[in-house]
């Protein structure tokens, strides 16, 4: 990788005090809710609400990777979109470096776009098939008027090199690339504005296993070189295990457990986390683990179960679980959980 280029790009941010360590909160999400109206009937009246994200709170520290895990449809993408205001949340607050994202004017929001970016899951749907790779990666410079002409072309070439592509790829169209290469193009696009936070929405789920680790390695390198903070979304605990500093587990639009990876993987407290972990195959044959099988289907987020939304599938379920929604509380320092029985 081109070191001089990295240095020149890093220059701006090294003065920003990025080395203050993990105590520095970059993003604060509080009581975030996103309800989608479900319309139907003759006059398309609202017949109910899909609670895609239902009262989610967490912090993201500068320089860390926060894994966000949960089954399909549990609201991970919606959470990400709300943070970026690609989706207007129903309520709650999102503070980026102390600035309230949700009350920003469109002008303030444009400035914020340079700080937060997103990498998508689908390597095919995330690149405009009618634009060249150069135009895709360089679009940020056009929108923000930060570089034009030769300067833009040069910056695009540098970005392509940084993600492991060649400068001559800039003239080609997305359909000429493989899935892994396309994902690199998406990463280059997200990097163009030198953001502080990148939301990686299942960036490797659609790729072959052999390609997955290449992309994860690239993201890992970029995090060091560009002092990036990641929110890394995945539907499977095994993917985020190695790359996350902390992991949050979501179920039906709610966070159920959040703590540092080591604690989460060695001593999970929430029954749902335990069930998810027990489903991961363990390479060591001596390591006997009881497999907890989750019974039943994920209930609909249209009418989530009362009380603890996991109670329909939880083997520890008590009366209180059916009636009272468990509070999101910190049981040990940095270990958050929503379960009546955890202590």
């Amino acid at each position: 990788m081109d070191k001089t280029w990295n240095n020149s790009l890093n220059h701006a941010s090294t003065n920003n005090g990025l080395d203050t360590g993990n105590d520095d909160v970059l993003l604060e999400v509080r009581n975030l809710k996103k309800y989608f109206p479900l319309r139907g009937g003759v006059f398309s009246r609202v017949q109910g609400w899909i609670k895609a994200v239902d009262d989610v709170s967490f912090d993201v520290y500068r320089g860390e990777t926060l894994g966000l895990v949960g089954e399909s449809g549990c609201g991970k993408t919606t959470t990400g979109k709300c943070i970026l205001r690609l989706e207007q949340p129903t309520s709650g607050s999102v503070l980026f470096e102390g600035k309230d994202v949700l009350s920003m004017t469109s002008e303030e929001l444009r400035t914020l776009r340079r700080e937060m970016q997103i990498i998508f899951q689908d390597p095919y749907g995330s690149l405009n098939p009618r634009m060249t790779v150069g135009d895709i990666v360089g679009e940020a410079f056009v929108i923000h008027g930060t570089a034009s002409g030769h300067e833009r072309a040069r910056r695009v070439e540098e970005l392509l090199k940084v993600v492991g592509l060649s400068p001559y790829h800039a003239r080609r169209y997305p359909h000429e690339f493989s899935g892994g290469q396309r994902q690199r193009i998406g990463i280059a696009r997200a990097l163009a504005l030198r953001p502080k936070l990148i939301i990686c929405d299942e960036p490797v789920s659609a790729l072959d296993v052999s390609i997955q680790s290449q992309i994860l390695n690239l993201l890992n390198e970029l995090q060091d070189d560009f002092q990036l903070t990641y929110i890394f979304i995945a539907h499977d605990l095994s993917v985020v295990q190695h790359i996350s500093d902390r992991v949050g587990v979501m179920y039906l639009g709610r966070l159920v457990e959040l703590t540092d990876s080591e604690t989460l993987y060695s001593s999970p407290k929430h029954p749902y986390t335990q069930a998810l972990l027990s489903a991961i195959p363990v390479p060591d044959p001596d390591h006997k683990k009881k497999r907890i099988v989750l019974e039943g289907d994920v209930p609909s987020s249209l009418e989530p179960p009362s009380g603890c939304s996991f109670h329909t599938r939880c083997s520890y379920c008590q009366d209180i679980c059916r009636e009272v929604r468990p509070e999101w509380r910190e049981i040990e320092e940095g270990h958050f959980i929503a379960c009546h029985l955890a202590e």
Binding site: L86, Q117, I118, D122, S126, A140, I143
Partner: peptide
């Protein structure tokens, strides 16, 4: 589509998204 969302995340205007 995700490429449209990506453009919005970059701060593209409605006109740019529609025409480009």
């Amino acid at each position: 589509q995700e490429f449209v969302l990506a453009a919005r995340a970059l701060g593209a205007s409605n006109a740019r998204i529609i025409f480009r």
